[in-house]
Design a protein around this nucleic acid. Structure first.
Lengths: 197, 197
DNA sequence: GGTATTTTATACATAAGTGAACAAAATATT
DNA sequence: AATATTTTGTTCACTTATGTATAAAATACC
């Protein structure tokens, strides 16, 4: 019962996400994104509200295609550590294959905004903590499944996995060779006793 | 034979560095920094040239006080791995103690600008690569000194150390407890066979 | 003291960026 | 077809930001 939008909302979010991924939050002004989308700022504000709102939508869109999304799923067929190892291999492949070396949008944003005492900064920090807790749960399951020794410090290992993810994604901005990235990931996973073929 | 500057140049660079550390490169406009320093943009341009130039000066000032500066020194009294372990402990302490959770200026900048094909982005990427090579040299010395087995893959371990540094510094934006950070560092170093008391 | 030299202040011009207001356009529903 | 509803286009008012140009101020040197 109203005028329809002249553009594809989901496609616009996707385009905006790619730009945020490329240049970060602060560099992605309403003006720039509007011009990129071929819409007026008027339409931007109307469709998405503030810059923060669109950023949150972009983060969600990113999450749906991120190589570490597998960790959020509920149904895990394969053993957890096999899945984890495969995920890291995927991360290395995807990051090395990006000609723009953008790393990970989430981690980039945490780095850019995590220190600020803004709503977005807090949101990113909270998501990071949730991610670590989720990983710890997965490792606890792995212990119960006999994939890991009973005395495994799953809390420490969960933080280490997060640490490795951060490092690989950021490092991929300087190291573009998949084998080099994988060398790091494999060495670290082996050192943590988490590597599984 | 000329009018002297009304401000302390080194102090100004230090103040600018702190601000760049806090909010990143793009957020630190000439206007903001000038107002923060209590000088006019005119003086800014005259004293430092472009924003890039001041940023490079700030990077140098940061490097001189960074917890990982020990890796650049030539004279190493203690065994290298003891020094390395101590450095990581220092990184954890310093990052946890920062009430603003700014992480590491260098790594923040690599994350923000590393992907862009700008002069600064390339400079940061190059510095990162140099850092990895320097670490590899140190590990090679450690092998020769008998601190590490002869078959150690120093290339892999050097990249892993860089990875760990990136992860800890960025993670410190979300994890403010020194013990938690150290837990990650120690677990990783032990896993890599690099931990020494 | 006069002069050369550099810093600082001020102004100018221009572009980018934000946010709101309001009218015009488009469409689904009645 | 009229209307309610939402999107879109346009304008306004304002701040931020960059870069330059030019004049005024302050000092060192002769």
């Amino acid at each position: 019962m109203a005028r329809p939008t002249s553009f594809d909302r989901d496609a616009a979010i996707e385009t905006a996400m790619q730009e945020l991924w490329r240049h970060g939050y602060e560099a992605s002004s309403v003006k720039k994104i509007s011009e990129l989308l071929g819409i007026t700022r008027s339409s931007y504000y109307n469709a998405f509200g503030t810059r923060e709102e669109l950023f949150k939508l972009a983060l969600a869109a990113y999450g749906a295609q991120s190589p570490d999304r597998v960790l959020c799923g509920d149904l895990l067929e394969r053993p957890i550590l096999v899945l984890l190892t495969a995920m890291f291999r995927q991360v290395c492949a995807v990051r090395a294959a990006d000609p723009e070396a953008r790393g990970c949008l989430f981690i980039n944003s945490l780095c850019e905004l995590g220190g600020e005492q803004s709503e977005l900064g807090q949101l990113l920090v909270d998501s990071f903590i949730s991610g670590a807790e989720r990983l710890e749960e997965l490792l606890d399951i792995a212990v119960r499944n006999g994939e890991l020794p009973g005395d495994t410090d799953t809390h420490a290992k969960a933080l280490c996995i997060q640490n490795l993810l951060i490092g690989l994604n950021t490092q991929s901005k300087a190291v573009h060779d998949e084998d080099e990235l994988w060398l790091v990931a494999r060495t670290m996973l082996e050192g943590l006793g988490l590597y599984r073929e």
